[in-house]
């Protein structure tokens, strides 16, 4: 049932799509049907694959970079008191700036290539990872810290053996959010200025009324985003087998 149910939902959505095409009678250059998109997929396979590879690399690099930088920032904020006083307000206020508005600047500074998209994805991932991990580091079970104090624990060792592992469940929820938003960063970056990638292809196809190709690109992007999320989610679950499903740390 675990495999059958998603497949049934998928089939149901495709059927709904076909039904919408038939009922509205929309022309194929407004809303192409599933079969048309499938033909566009197979007919432009190598073109789509080339552009998809570019986008996938951008997303993965952004995800890794954003997670690493976000985790480091959280560690610094949580452990260095002056950093918390000075950096945390800056970090929070910076989130009021819509990251998408920075995209043209990133393209201007970093060029039309890979760097500006990776930067965009990194920026969009950075904050959820930092806040989630920082929150986890800040909320170590007080009883554990008491225990560490009576044991004569040293701050760095307590951080490494107690506070960081205890904050990993929080970090993983940050990484889950990051995984879900990483494709947005990459595609927005491509829309603003690029010469390759699924976002570029979609804009290009749209302008030339190749709506079926645009849908094919969108379909590939969605497929990859869902696949990435499922993979990351399963990987995180496997990495923290002791983490209870409901988020509680101790079972009664």
């Amino acid at each position: 049932m675990r495999i059958v149910r998603p497949l049934l939902i998928f089939a149901g959505l495709i059927a709904l799509w076909q039904l919408a095409v038939m009922v509205t009678g929309a022309p194929h250059y407004i809303l192409p049907g599933p079969m048309r998109v499938l033909r566009a997929l197979s007919g432009n396979a190598s073109l789509l694959l080339d552009h998809a590879t570019v986008t996938v690399v951008e997303i993965l690099l952004g995800l890794v970079l954003g997670t690493v930088l976000g985790s480091l920032a959280a560690l610094v904020i949580a452990t260095v008191r002056p950093a918390r006083r000075w950096l945390l307000p800056v970090l929070v206020i910076s989130q009021a700036i819509p990251v998408f508005a920075l995209a043209p600047m990133l393209v201007l500074w970093l060029g039309y290539g890979l760097a500006s998209k990776v930067a965009m994805a990194t920026l969009i991932i950075f904050f959820p990872v930092t806040t989630a991990f920082f929150d986890g580091l800040r909320r170590t079970e007080p009883g554990w810290l008491d225990l560490a104090r009576t044991m004569g624990g040293r701050p760095l060792h307590v951080l490494w053996h107690l506070r960081i592992p205890a904050a990993l469940p929080a970090l993983t929820s940050g990484i889950r959010v990051a995984t879900a938003v990483a494709p947005i960063g990459a595609v927005v970056g491509e829309w603003v200025g690029s010469s390759a990638g699924l976002g570029y292809l979609m804009l290009h196809a749209n302008a030339r009324m190749q709506v079926d190709l645009m849908f094919a690109a969108l379909f590939l992007l969605a497929l990859f985003a869902v696949g990435l999320y499922v993979t990351v989610d399963a990987g995180l679950r496997r990495a923290l087998p002791w983490q209870p499903e409901d988020g509680r740390l101790t079972a009664d």
């Binding site: 008491d146 044991m151 624990g153």
Partner: peptide, 29 residues
């Protein structure tokens, strides 16, 4: 010179029984 035993066992869920018993050594480096 004290050891502390609370109402909650305060075991770390990611460590084995052995890892929890030697926790003091880990935390003192």
């Amino acid at each position: 010179r004290i050891a502390y035993l609370a109402q909650q066992d305060l075991l770390l869920p990611w460590l084995s029984v052995l890892g929890n018993v030697v926790l003091g050594y880990r935390l003192r480096g």
